[in-house]
Write a protein that binds this DNA or RNA. Sequence first.
DNA 1: TTGACCAATGCACTTGTGTGCATTCGAGAA
DNA 2: TTCTCGAATGCACACAAGTGCATTGGTCAA
Lengths: 338, 338
Amino acid sequence: MTTDVKPRSFVSARMVAEKAGVSRSAVSRTFTHGASVSEETRRKVLDAAGALGYHVNHLARGLRERSNIVCLVVADMTTPIRAGMVDVLTRELQASGKITMVINTRADTESVSQALRQTLNYRADATVVLSGTPPATLIETCLANGQQVVLINRDDKLVGSHNLGVDNAMAGREAYFLLRRAGCQRLGLVTSDAGTASLVERERVFVDAARADGIEVAVFETGPTGYASGFEAGRRAFGRSSSPDGVFCVTDLLALGFMDAAMHEFGLRIPEDLCVVGFDDIEQAGWQSYRLTTFAQPLKDMAEQVMDLLLDPDSAGSERILFEPTPRWRKSVRPGPV
Amino acid sequence: MTTDVKPRSFVSARMVAEKAGVSRSAVSRTFTHGASVSEETRRKVLDAAGALGYHVNHLARGLRERSNIVCLVVADMTTPIRAGMVDVLTRELQASGKITMVINTRADTESVSQALRQTLNYRADATVVLSGTPPATLIETCLANGQQVVLINRDDKLVGSHNLGVDNAMAGREAYFLLRRAGCQRLGLVTSDAGTASLVERERVFVDAARADGIEVAVFETGPTGYASGFEAGRRAFGRSSSPDGVFCVTDLLALGFMDAAMHEFGLRIPEDLCVVGFDDIEQAGWQSYRLTTFAQPLKDMAEQVMDLLLDPDSAGSERILFEPTPRWRKSVRPGPV
DNA sequence: TTGACCAATGCACTTGTGTGCATTCGAGAA
DNA sequence: TTCTCGAATGCACACAAGTGCATTGGTCAA
């Protein structure tokens, strides 16, 4: 063995050109739409490319113009609602020829900072943040580098970034209305310690609406956003003297946990003894054991809006785009008083 | 306006060099671990880089050596088990400094082919396939181009590709044993029309084990893998004369749907009237309304194994690595006969 | 027959890195 | 003072593409 040169793992345009007996430019032009190549050369190039297994290097192409890479920063991916968002977004991005880099981050700031830096390292054209708390300075760096930034369900007011969100206030009001119409007297609210803007707003509007009618709401906050916290909230809610008969849970997962505690730990019937309203309309909310009345986030619409923003190069951004959650009437709320 | 030259969106090493008054090589070396740079130059470069907001372009870096990109090909991402896989894998990849490209594909072959091609276009070092049916020829192309290929829960026997999977046979046998010990007489099996190798194997082993004891199993196959199919299976199972009293569902989602139909449509008690065993141990299986006895896929272990394979450059591959699913005893199966 | 014109092609430059090689510079030893 | 050695630095090239510009070859009309 004189040479240690093992066959190059990736074939380049140069190698195709050699095999086809043409110039490298010809290869390049063959794979560029609208370039001027004779039919004969084109065929020779395509034959050689097929034989060698050639694939255009999008990384090198991205060196000159745009990379077509979009970064998706997301936390709590196993949560049904988040999984749904990632699913619809990746699908939509792919359909437009973009490629998706997923950055899975825990909630802590340091982790997100690192993630955002990766975004810049790989020259992503845009960054879509589904969660976490990216420091404003880092997002500004993204913007300064010409990236487009889309924030979903967050309430930062960063100049230049796009902001999508659902109308939480509407959901809070509507939830209160539903429970009152069902004749509920002792209202409760279940939330998490996440302190996300969306969650806080739903809580605030619901509590305020009740207070305007002179009704005080019992608030339960037992841990992170999830089934377990809802279950624990249920345990506490019914383990004492005055227990609620109508509850708004700011998230479906919380609601399902709460319902399970009420049903299986305390033998309550839903909706006869207890009415529950959730938010998100995750798949499980429609399962026969729960049939939760809730609000659906228009995921598909939001994803399409994101694509419109990304594909429009000179979209100004920085105004907040609100989406109407659509109510899903199921069986966890009575149509009227008992 | 004489010039139309707007400030370059991304700052390059050249610009940093100019501002710092050093050569571009110095900048490059500052950001390369172990290179020879004086402390003074390093500081000047870092200052300039900070002021300009410079970030190393990993795309250009990837032109020379490896790209550090790993492609994750996945279908049915909203499914809890898949979401869990994507979550743990992205987390693990990130921890090793890899970047994850998610390719969301429908089950059809054409879609997956296109996805695999993207993988090659972006010079991914490796491809991890969670699902779908990539044609063998395409995977061979990946291998020929020096990519590592990891197939999870599939049964292709492609030379050079790594194969991870869980011991489906063990689960099938164990499920049969559990139901028999509970005293179940009329066994049923719920599966989907997906025809995945894993699903088929679980079904086959379960049915064979029963047949060996002279017991015939009623098989229900009503649609794609999911809650709705399980529910429909339940409807059919109890809508006729001889209904099962012990059922193995090849997936938790099928099991939960089946249980809901049994409980809410036919008023059956679990486990008194009906025993159910699932597979996957998704989060919902532990919820209070179900408490499903099932088998957990060792997601974390599998992800770590994937990382070991990817980080070891000369791992031969092509042998199948089996993982033991761990049984989760809950309440959907009686400990003994009624 | 010759000028004009157009399609096809190749050369050379661009993008942003990392790095081998040569050069420079300064310090320490003889 | 001079020689040696190592650290620091810059030049130039490689990587894999796209593309402006010049050149070539062929066809058609005058």
